[in-house]
Design a protein around this nucleic acid. Structure first.
Lengths: 198, 198
DNA sequence: TATTTTAATTAAACACTGTTTAATTAAAAT
DNA sequence: ATTTTAATTAAACAGTGTTTAATTAAAATA
């Protein structure tokens, strides 16, 4: 068989992202496969490869959507707080909430590895840089006297800490309810670190 | 063919761990496979499954060895410092050094996931708990007035932070030389966090 | 010592995986 | 109306971890 034209390229792409989203609501990253996705989308694996280049490209497209979601949530969280320190807390809690509520989507972002030899696409790196820049923006208001390299250090320390806490939370390595105690850890990290830093 | 008896069960296990070690010196976690390992060991995949239960069990055995290495390095690092704060720094730097120098082994510890339904073996969890307890021991000396739940929070924050920094370092997300700037981030994290915490 | 039982080892099959190839055919361009 | 282009698929390919059945050497038993 050949050329159906039930959907345009863009429609198949959109349809795929929706179906993967649905799967990730209940199933883990490791139970995902190109063939399984192709089946629920209603096209063959080869068609999805034709559209996304390869399986890695498909997952990357899912992750781009996730990062866009995270970015939008971050923007509204920032707008809802006046104080720069509170903005920073809000940012970290958006990150934790996303990790806890969309655990499999969140894990996919960091579980994904480029195939040997391929570079991370610039549009993907841009999305990550954008998230970092929001953090940096808060620190710029909190400590305007600091140099940009000092701020860069603090940004990375805070991101690493929050990310590590989210890893513990999503992997249920936190005794009590993951989200609640995750929030506590984040509060402790940010308050204590910044209290001394500036 | 059947029953060779070139090696005992223990010898094959030991041989396997050695060969995997060698492979991980140059190749990444994702290029590893049971069949590839079996080939270099000189036995068939089914033999390795007979010994380790399944592929996951084989990787778990590699990780147990890695955690033992990390533990031993930690013990000697602790012994080489008198001051409790310096001990803590030493501990964190052992972790970073191991991540940078044995990157693939280190990544395998955290990339590995139990198969659906199987629980983390207690002997593996014990090894992880042991590492956490070393950290907790330092904090106990640094801040004996704190409650054990307060210390638990600090332990987790510090571990999460150091782990996140190591992730950045091993994935070359750190502009300059990974190890050097990783050390800087860890210093910033520990000094600032503890400076405010106690 | 001869015989039975046990278990180590393997080849082959199984059910998957992502990707490539070649063929089909509908749509677009000429 | 004809040619070109490209969407789509089935099938093949090379790989994965695991299971099964057969072989056979070693250990246990008689």
């Amino acid at each position: 068989m050949a050329r159906r034209y039930d959907h345009s390229r863009e429609e198949i792409q959109q349809l795929t992202l929706e179906k993967v989203s649905e799967i990730l609501k209940t199933e883990s990253v490791h139970s995902l496969s190109l063939r399984k996705i192709a089946k629920v989308v209603g096209y063959t694996p080869a068609t999805l490869i034709n559209i996304f280049g390869n399986y890695s490209g498909l997952l990357l497209a899912v992750n781009a959507e996730s990062l866009d979601e995270l970015h939008e949530l971050s923007i509204t969280a920032l707008a809802s707080e006046a104080n720069a320190l509170k903005k920073l807390h809000a940012l970290a809690n958006v990150y934790l909430s996303y990790a806890c509520e969309h655990t499999h989507r969140w894990q996919l972002i960091f579980d994904h590895r480029m195939p040997e030899g391929e570079e991370v696409p610039h549009w993907h790196q841009q999305r990550i840089d954008l998230m970092f820049s929001l953090l940096d923006g808060c620190l710029q208001i909190i400590a305007p006297e600091k140099s940009s390299s000092e701020r860069e250090t603090a940004t990375r320390v805070l991101w690493a800490g929050v990310h590590g806490i989210c890893l513990l939370a999503t992997e249920d390595k936190l005794f009590s309810k993951a989200h609640a105690s995750g929030e506590m850890l984040i509060q402790s990290l940010i308050d204590n670190y910044l209290n001394s830093w500036c």
